[in-house]
Design a binder for these strands. Structure first.
Lengths: 112, 112
DNA sequence: CTGCTACTTAGACACCTGTCGAATCAAGGA
DNA sequence: TCCTTGATTCGACAGGTGTCTAAGTAGCAG
């Protein structure tokens, strides 16, 4: 019945320890903005698993610096990663980070 | 292959629509604070499925009004609900809200 | 009614955040 | 070399957030 080592048990099964809460909160915080949520989704669902910034800016009524700011927040949270290749900068998601959040919110422990 | 009606497809499978992002972001935002994360977890994992405020305040080095404030944020986001019974106020989680967030972050569509 | 306990609301204040325009950096052609 | 395009950084500013103290509300017991 009990299985989790404490690091990945869902939030509902046992009280989150202080350190884990401090670790997870910034990730949720990064997701707490509709622009960032859509950015993450656009990147994640983009063909090839990665997207150029130029693929993203068009989807919003925001200036390039603002998009850049949101991408930085997502990257510093560890939800996405990026690399420059020639003229363009490409972004892709970090699946383990998303999976961890999903698991924490799951109603019961998910078998790994 | 495709199954989701658009309302619950995971973030990675197709771009989040504008409205859905606007709907989800406040929930993630509410989770974006370590105190609230621990509060939610304490409530969710408490025996009986609900917790009195008096069960919660002791776990933090914060004043009662601050705890009250965080509980209000969680409640307004729809993550928890509350009721006064006599002298005490009880809180419990709203499982569908958590499940929805978990599903959105899941690597692939979860069979309902 | 008076007082006591549990909790919430109100007001204040330092700090953080989302957005923009302007400037800057990086890479690739003329 | 200089110019153009793609993207980030900087500086500023309105508005939001977490925390506190003080004050208020709700129920219970004399």
């Amino acid at each position: 019945m009990v299985e989790a080592p404490g690091c990945c048990a869902p939030l509902v099964s046992e009280p989150l320890r202080d350190g884990e809460a401090a670790e997870l909160a910034p990730l949720f915080k990064a997701l707490g903005d509709p622009v960032r949520l859509r950015l993450l989704s656009l990147i994640a669902s983009h063909a090839g698993g990665e997207a150029c910034v130029c693929d993203l800016t068009g989807a919003f009524d925001l200036t390039a610096p603002t998009i850049s700011h949101h991408l930085k927040v997502l990257r510093q949270a560890g939800l996405i990663d990026s690399e420059r290749r020639g003229t363009w900068v490409y972004y892709w998601i970090n699946p383990p980070a998303l999976e961890r959040l999903s698991a924490v919110l799951a109603p019961r422990a998910v078998p790994v």
